[in-house]
Structures are given as structure tokens and as C-alpha cells.
Amino acid sequence: MEEKDNLPKTDVSRDGQKPVVQKKYTIGLLVSRSNKRVKKYLTGLLDLADCCEDGVVVVFSLKGISRERQVINGYLYNASERKWEPATFSIPDAIINRISLKRKWVQYFEDTVGCNMINNFTFSKWDMYQWLSKNPNFNKYLPLTQIITEPKVIIDFLEQYKEGYIKPINGSYGKGIYKISKEDEIFKLDVSRDRKKTQSMYVNYEELTEYFRKICKRRNYIIQQVIDLYVVDRPVDFRLITVKNGLGEWRDVGLLARKGVKGEIVSNTGVVKNGNSALQNVLSIRRNEAIELRKKMIDVSLEAAKEMERYGGPNGNLGNLGFDLAIDRNKNLWIIEINHRNPRHRMAVDAGESGMYVQANKLMMDFAITLAKAEGQ
């Protein structure tokens, strides 16, 4: 913290000019590893930047940071013209992080901003399972999951469960997911790639072993128990938006339902709807059952958020999460995934629930402002 305290707080210069903005605090949005990718995110960040009325908002990448000079090249939000402008600035007082961080960067931000980074550590699907499964309060909500260290893990899993989902441990948006099943000596692989239609292939033992030996060299994968989420041959799951408010307290912002395309193995390519009504209508359950399930989703998710924060250690600070949840045919609740890098709350707009999106941005910025003001005191 000593290095940062020697810097002029909230000094910002445009295009090499002298500082032109002097305000109380600066909120940084870390959105990419490389400078090239920052520009593509700028338009989508305008709504979040608008939530900060009396501070400076800047956007940057890891590549834009000069660790020696403790300054950053990025973009400054010009609120009066509602646009981003190239700028150089000191380390922000608080940061909203939207990317995965390697250990060296976790340490760097801990040294420079302390706990003032929202989502200041990274965890994979496997990390989440390992941590939560140790706790009996959460283990019952987790599909059985194993890390694939070699193709034999897949074979052994199918001997017991007949089918499973194979997922990249750091994947997102439903990309690169396989559904695998076994019948006699033949294995069926359904593959989800981006937004393209699921492709199926049939392989024998040797072909399966060779195929996964190759892909597991490039990425790490898990195999996960299949939960029966299907309603009339369509996968249905739920996204619970959870964000901390200005007091640092977790809040339930809203529930969305995602109904996938018929025959697909993921719900990401389907329709997004209001989750509260979908609980009752899509799952065809009574109103009181839907209310009870909704409450359970909130209670379990908010406690799981607190538990994952403990995974980050004494300085771990989460504040922006999206829980992927499922209800099976027996009305059991399952935690499929916790999204923390960029939960994409904008999907609420697709469901006609722009209020959720606005509230999520406001709460997130309020929390960042609280952290920044505490830093400046």
C-alpha cells in the first residue's frame, strides 16, 4: 500500500496533457488482459459507468499497467459526452474485476489496492466443487464431479453412471461442453460449440481414449453427473443474479430462466425468461411450491457466495456473481456453476427485465464506491 499512497490520487491526463479531472475517488474496470480487446467492451460499459455520479471511472487491461511507474494507460469516462477517451491514470481506489487472474496478478492487486477489488481472485469449476463439497451444507446441492487426469477417468465414470457432462474447468457460455453416454461398447458424444447446433458422433473405446488424450493436453476438463433438467426435450436452468450493495451485503437482484433449444445439451442458445414465473409455469408446479423453491435458491446461493469468499482467504472479496441453478424432475435444487469473471447480467434485458440489469449495475457501483471512499479516508 505504501507505493500507492505516494501517488497523486485520482490524477488523470488525456492524451499526455496535464491532469484535467480532480475528484474524490477513481473506480477502475478491469476488462481484459490485452489492450486490443479493451475497445470492444467500451460500449457495453456505459451503463455501469453512468452509475458513478461524483467519481472518475476508468477502463483498463492488464497490459496497460506499468508496474514500475504505477500508472495505467486505458480509457477515461467522459460523463458529459457519454463516451470513453484515451487516458493515463494512477492505480484506481477501487476496481471491479471482470477477468480471471493468475496468482502473480492476485498478489499484485492485493499489494496495491488491498481488498478494494471486487472479485479479486479466480476459481474454476473444479475449485468450486472441491471447496463446497467439503461442507455438508452444500455437498447435497452439487452434481458429483471428477477431474479428468486421463481418459480412464471417463471410462470408469461411465461404468457407474452411464452418462456425464464433460466441461472445461474454466469454460463459460456453454462452449466446449460434451454430453457423453455409453451403450454396450459404443460411446455417444454430443458436442456443444459456441451457438452452433449440437453435433453427435459415435466412437469406440480406442477412439474415445485417443480423442480425449489430445484435447486434455490443451485444457483441463471435469466430468459431471447429469441432472435431468429437461422439459419436453429442452434443457431448462436458472440464473440467480447476486451482487453486494453499498454496505457490502449480498443482495438477490433477480432470477432468470433459460430454456434451451429442443434437443440441445445446454440452455445458453435458448430463450431467457423471468425466472419467478418460469418456476411455476415451465416446471408445471403449484404457486406455493414455486415460492418455496425460490426462497431456497436465495438462501443456498447467498450462503454459497459467502463460503466461496472464504476460499479466497482473509483478503478474498467477491461482490458480483451469477449462480447457474437447476431443478430436477424430483424438484431437487442443484448448483451447476458460479459465474464470477463476467456474469453478464445484461441477459436480464433479453428477458424483458431491464430493471434487474439496472439494479445489478447500481449495487455493484455502490459497493465499489464504498470501497474507494474507505481507501481515501
Rank of each mutant, 00 (worst) to 15 (best):
residue 118 I to H: 14
residue 129 Y to P: 04
residue 90 S to D: 01
residue 133 S to L: 08
residue 108 Y to H: 05
residue 135 N to T: 12
residue 113 V to M: 10
residue 129 Y to Q: 07
residue 101 L to G: 04
residue 101 L to C: 12
residue 111 D to Q: 09
residue 110 E to T: 12
residue 128 M to A: 14
residue 93 D to T: 10
residue 95 I to G: 01
residue 128 M to P: 01
residue 131 W to D: 01
residue 115 C to V: 09
residue 110 E to N: 08
residue 127 D to G: 09
residue 106 V to I: 03
residue 104 K to M: 01
residue 102 K to M: 14
residue 133 S to R: 15
residue 136 P to N: 14
residue 132 L to A: 10
residue 135 N to L: 14
residue 90 S to Q: 08
residue 90 S to P: 06
residue 87 A to I: 02
residue 90 S to K: 10
residue 112 T to I: 05
residue 126 W to Q: 07
residue 120 N to M: 07
residue 103 R to N: 06
residue 130 Q to G: 05
residue 106 V to E: 09
residue 105 W to M: 03
residue 110 E to K: 15
residue 107 Q to I: 05
residue 116 N to S: 09
residue 91 I to D: 04
residue 122 T to S: 15
residue 123 F to H: 12
residue 105 W to P: 00
residue 105 W to V: 00
residue 113 V to A: 09
residue 108 Y to F: 15
residue 112 T to V: 06
residue 87 A to P: 00
residue 103 R to G: 02
residue 107 Q to L: 10
residue 117 M to H: 01
residue 119 N to Y: 08
residue 126 W to S: 02
residue 101 L to K: 02
residue 136 P to I: 15
residue 108 Y to R: 13
residue 93 D to Y: 06
residue 109 F to R: 11
residue 89 F to E: 02
residue 98 R to S: 11
residue 133 S to N: 12
residue 110 E to C: 03
residue 115 C to M: 11
residue 134 K to T: 02
residue 123 F to A: 06
residue 98 R to P: 00
residue 109 F to G: 02
residue 119 N to F: 10
residue 117 M to G: 02
residue 91 I to P: 00
residue 131 W to I: 00
residue 97 N to R: 15
residue 101 L to V: 03
residue 90 S to Y: 12
residue 123 F to K: 13
residue 95 I to L: 05
residue 126 W to M: 11
residue 123 F to G: 11
residue 132 L to N: 00
residue 105 W to Y: 06
residue 97 N to T: 14
residue 135 N to V: 12
residue 124 S to H: 07
residue 136 P to C: 09
residue 117 M to S: 03
residue 103 R to D: 02
residue 112 T to Q: 08
residue 88 T to Y: 03
residue 120 N to Q: 14
residue 108 Y to P: 00
residue 109 F to Q: 04
residue 134 K to P: 15
residue 130 Q to E: 08
residue 117 M to Y: 06
residue 94 A to M: 06
residue 97 N to E: 04
residue 93 D to Q: 13
residue 93 D to G: 14
residue 124 S to Y: 13
residue 130 Q to M: 10
residue 91 I to G: 07
residue 93 D to A: 09
residue 94 A to W: 05
residue 131 W to R: 00
residue 136 P to V: 14
residue 100 S to M: 14
residue 121 F to E: 11
residue 119 N to K: 13
residue 130 Q to W: 02
residue 110 E to M: 04
residue 128 M to L: 14
residue 97 N to M: 12
residue 126 W to K: 04
residue 116 N to A: 08
residue 99 I to H: 06
residue 110 E to H: 12
residue 96 I to D: 07
residue 129 Y to C: 03
residue 100 S to E: 07
residue 123 F to I: 13
residue 87 A to Q: 04
residue 105 W to D: 02
residue 107 Q to S: 06
residue 97 N to I: 08
residue 131 W to L: 00
residue 131 W to H: 08
residue 90 S to W: 11
residue 107 Q to G: 01
residue 105 W to A: 00
residue 111 D to G: 01
residue 98 R to K: 15
residue 94 A to R: 15
residue 109 F to P: 00
residue 108 Y to M: 04
residue 116 N to K: 13
residue 101 L to D: 11
residue 118 I to E: 08
residue 95 I to T: 09
residue 93 D to N: 14
residue 131 W to N: 00
residue 119 N to G: 11
residue 108 Y to L: 09
residue 91 I to W: 07
residue 111 D to M: 10
